[in-house]
Amino acid sequence: MKSNWTVYLSGEIHTDWREQIERGCEARGLPISFHAPVTDHGKSDDCGVEILGAEEKGFWKDQKGARMNAIRTQTLIEKSDIVVVRFGDKYRQWNAAFDAGFAAAKGKPVITLHDAELTHPLKEVDGAALAVAETPEQVVRILNYVIDGSL
């Protein structure tokens, strides 16, 4: 058993799934450090122009923000032992799909988390994942088994 694991929680930012996983793992005493993208939508969107200066066109504003967020995301995924990627049903999370692909390309174990209704549209992403969960509790149980060997 590794003494401390690092888990990156990627994807949907409109529900409390991250907190559910963190609380569940804490309750089981699992030695995990969690990392995530900046989940404040405004900060994530505006970081590039706030730091590097305004842009007239939305495209360039988005490019600055996306690249700054990529520094964070790619660095934290590379440092992670496991990457959990949550796909919600309300918004399309293209960035989450990219994170899953990046993690898989880097040889990081990926766990996807989504409702059963998204199974078909996410079949390729799920095909690259080592586990596919439908609830945060299932993710907690997967992490518990992987880290501690306990069911």
Rank of each mutant, 00 (worst) to 15 (best):
K57Q: 04
L113G: 06
Q74R: 07
E137D: 15
R18M: 12
N69H: 06
L9G: 10
H35M: 04
G88F: 03
I147L: 04
K2Y: 13
L9D: 03
A129H: 02
I32T: 04
L76Y: 05
S80D: 02
G127Q: 04
A129L: 03
Q63T: 15
K79N: 11
H14G: 14
G58F: 09
L52M: 11
G149D: 09
H14E: 15
T73P: 05
W17Q: 09
E56N: 02
F59W: 06
K61H: 05
I147F: 00
P31Q: 02
F87K: 03
K2W: 12
V85K: 01
V49Y: 02
P109A: 11
D126W: 02
V139A: 07
L30C: 04
L9E: 06
K106A: 11
F59D: 10
L30M: 06
D115G: 11
K64T: 03
G29D: 08
L52D: 00
S10P: 05
N69S: 08
L118T: 10
V125K: 00
H120N: 10
A133G: 05
S3I: 13
I142D: 01
D40Y: 02
T75Y: 15
S80Y: 01
L9N: 08
K43M: 09
G127V: 09
W17M: 12
A100V: 04
D99I: 02
E12G: 04
A129K: 00
A128S: 12
Y91W: 09
Q20E: 15
E56F: 07
D62T: 04
L143P: 01
Q93E: 11
D62M: 02
G29C: 06
A100S: 10
A27K: 12
H120G: 03
K90E: 13
A70T: 05
M1Y: 04
A116S: 08
W94G: 05
R18K: 15
V83H: 00
L76Q: 02
K108L: 09
V146H: 06
R18P: 05
A36L: 06
A105G: 15
F87A: 03
T135Y: 09
M1F: 08
V140I: 11
I51E: 09
E78A: 13
W60Y: 13
D16C: 03
A133F: 02
E55K: 00
K43Q: 13
P109E: 11
P136K: 03
M1V: 06
T135W: 12
G29H: 07
D126C: 10
G58Y: 07
K64E: 05
V83L: 07
A103C: 11
E78H: 08
G11W: 03
K106F: 05
L52Q: 10
T39S: 12
G101N: 05
M1G: 05
A66K: 01
L9H: 06
